[in-house]
Each structure stands twice: as C-alpha cells, then as structure tokens.
C-alpha cells in the first residue's frame, strides 16, 4: 500500500526529475521501494544513468540493482533490446544467479515464447520451490496464454503455501469471476474481507458476487454487505446504493405472496433511493428523470 505522503513525495520527485532537476537515483529508489509501476519513467531515467559511465560507477554495488530495475521496466515497455543488454551485463557479472535466471525467463515471457519461459520457470522452481515471485510469474504466464484454468491451478498451488498473500486472493477472485465461478469467487472475497475488514471495495465486490449468485439468502446477505459498504464509505458509494435497490426488488419478487417477515427492507431501499436522487440532483440533474424511471421500474421509490 502506498500512503498519501509517500505518493506526494513520489510525484514531487518525479516532476523534479522530469524537469532535469536531479535526484534521479532517489526517484528510482523510491519507485523500487514503493513497488509502483512507472516503467516508462524508470526506463528513461534509469538508462540515462546507465549510459553515463561516471554516474554509473558512482553508484557502487547498487549499479546491479539498477540494471535489474531497468531490465524489468524495459520489458514492461517492450524495449526488448534494452532489456536484453541489461540482462547480458548482469549475466556476465553473476553467471549462476537465480535472480538473473528469473530475469531471463521473464525475457522469454516478454518475447511471447511461452514454452521456453515455462521451462525456465519450472527449472527455477526446482531449485527453490518457495520463491513467491516465480509462482506469481507462472500465474501471469498462464493468464497471458489465455489458459485461465491453468492460472487458477497455479494460484491455488501458490495459495496453499502462501495463504496470507491477499493480493493473490484478490487475483484469484477476479479470475473466478471471469470464469463465472461465483461461489469460489465469493470464498475469495470472504478471505479479503477477513484480511482487511475496513476496505469498502471488498465488501462491495463480495455483495456483487452474492447478488449475482441469487437466491433469497444470498440476496439478503448481499444487501447487508451493500449496507456495510455505504457505512464504510460514509454514503458516498453510488454502486452500493443501486445495489440495495436492486437487492430489495429482487427479494420482494422472490417473497411475493408470502407473508413479509423483513420489516426493514422498504425503509432501507427508500432511503437508498432518496440518497441516489439527491446525488443525481447535485451532480447530473439532467439524468434525474432516467433515474426516477429506473427506480420506479424497480418499485422501490414509493
């Protein structure tokens, strides 16, 4: 997670570097530390250091770190020649390094020669079966080939060991949604909610999945999670407001004819509808009639 102060610092340094104000190395260090993806900038400024022998040698042993960083950035920008040069330099310096081996495998991946990349990763995993980066690269490789089931399998294998890696859970949830396996996706979102209970986005995504799954129980739970999203965002999330309206109308359809046991639902949905109307009135008053029509169709705005 990048905090606000770190981000402002990064942006300040970036604009300073862009205007030739120096501090390039500090900027690159910060990018590396925060793990942000600004490959084009890294490539441009990193190369400016690497191509200048005086600046390069003044880095000392950090020079090799920079080579690695620039190589990865270059692969991200599809400058494969630059990446290749960097990797060759690193290979000459560290002939047996696993880390360089990883870069070489990534180069195969960037070129699109999947089989060679797969082979390289497999041999790297044999030496060190606990390298999380390689596991993740394999998932990315499977995804790049469009082989989602393979990606799921790799991710599951990874999560079996590193089960506290919540970014991986999130990735898995998104893959499951793309495969329309909503039950599994719901499980992943439960994990995410457990890990960071105060992030409203996970509540929202979980509610979406539950709503998609359908069924009375799931819809009721989905409504709860839409409500908690609203609670956590301070009422600023329109998607959750719409979600509540949709859930309520779906529940009403399912329980039609039966005696109504939830008493709070009309209240909740009319509140959500009122909040939506207020937001539209403030932000986009010309769309207000469309909203009223839609809400009327859902029979929630009384």
């Amino acid at each position: 997670m990048v905090t606000k102060t770190e981000e402002t610092q990064l942006n300040r340094l970036e604009s300073q570097v862009e205007h030739g104000g120096g501090g390039v190395w500090e900027y690159l260090c910060l990018v590396r530390k925060l793990k942000v993806r600004r490959s084009d900038k890294v490539l441009k400024h990193g190369l400016s250091i690497l191509n200048d022998p005086k600046k390069r040698s003044s880095l000392g042993p950090d020079e090799w770190t920079l080579y690695e960083q620039v190589a990865v950035a270059a692969m991200d920008c599809q400058c494969l020649d630059v990446a290749k040069d960097c990797i060759n330099v690193l290979h000459k310096r560290f002939p047996d390094s696993k880390r360089v081996g990883r870069l070489e495998a990534m180069l195969f991946e960037a070129k699109g020669s999947w089989e060679e990349a797969e082979k390289a990763y497999a041999s790297l995993l044999e030496d060190n079966s606990l390298d999380p980066v390689i596991h993740k690269r394999r998932v990315a490789l499977a995804k790049a080939q469009g082989n989602m089931l393979m990606a799921v399998e790799c991710l599951n294998k990874y999560l079996n060991i590193f089960m506290a890696d919540y970014d991986a859970w999130r990735e898995l949830a998104e893959i499951y949604i793309s495969l329309q396996m909503y039950k599994q996706a719901a499980f992943c979102y439960e994990e995410l909610v457990l890990s960071q209970p105060t992030v409203p986005l996970y509540h929202l995504a979980y509610a979406d999945v539950l709503y998609t799954l359908g069924g009375l129980e799931n819809l009721q739970t989905a409504r709860k999670y839409y409500s908690s999203t609203i609670d956590l965002t301070g009422g600023k999330n329109n998607r959750a407001l719409f979600g509540i309206c949709l859930c309520t109308s779906a529940i009403a359809q399912l329980t039609k004819g039966r005696n109504k046991e939830d008493k709070d639902s009309p209240d909740l949905s009319s509140l959500a509808a009122a909040a939506l109307e207020k937001v539209y009135k403030q932000g986009a008053s010309d769309k207000l009639p469309i909203l009223t029509l839609a809400l009327k169709n859902l029979r929630v705005s009384s």
């Binding site: 060190n128 079966s129 606990l130 079996n160 060991i161 590193f162 089960m163 506290a164 890696d165 439960e190 994990e191 909610v193 457990l194 890990s195 209970p197 739970t221 908690s228």
Partner: peptide, 27 residues
C-alpha cells in the same frame, strides 16, 4: 533455505488470526 513447512505454518497462523479478528465481518 526456508523450510516449506515453516513458511506455511507462519502463513496459516496469520490467516487464522485474521479469521479470529474479523469473524464478525463474514456470514
């Protein structure tokens, strides 16, 4: 070289701790 069993154990404990702390947030 880290032992896979130990790594896994640590991760299990983190996840179980999250479960205990956030139990009220899931159905």
């Amino acid at each position: 070289v880290p032992d896979p069993k130990i790594v896994k154990e640590g991760q299990v404990i983190v996840r179980a701790r999250n479960l205990r702390a956030g139990a009220n947030f899931i159905p």
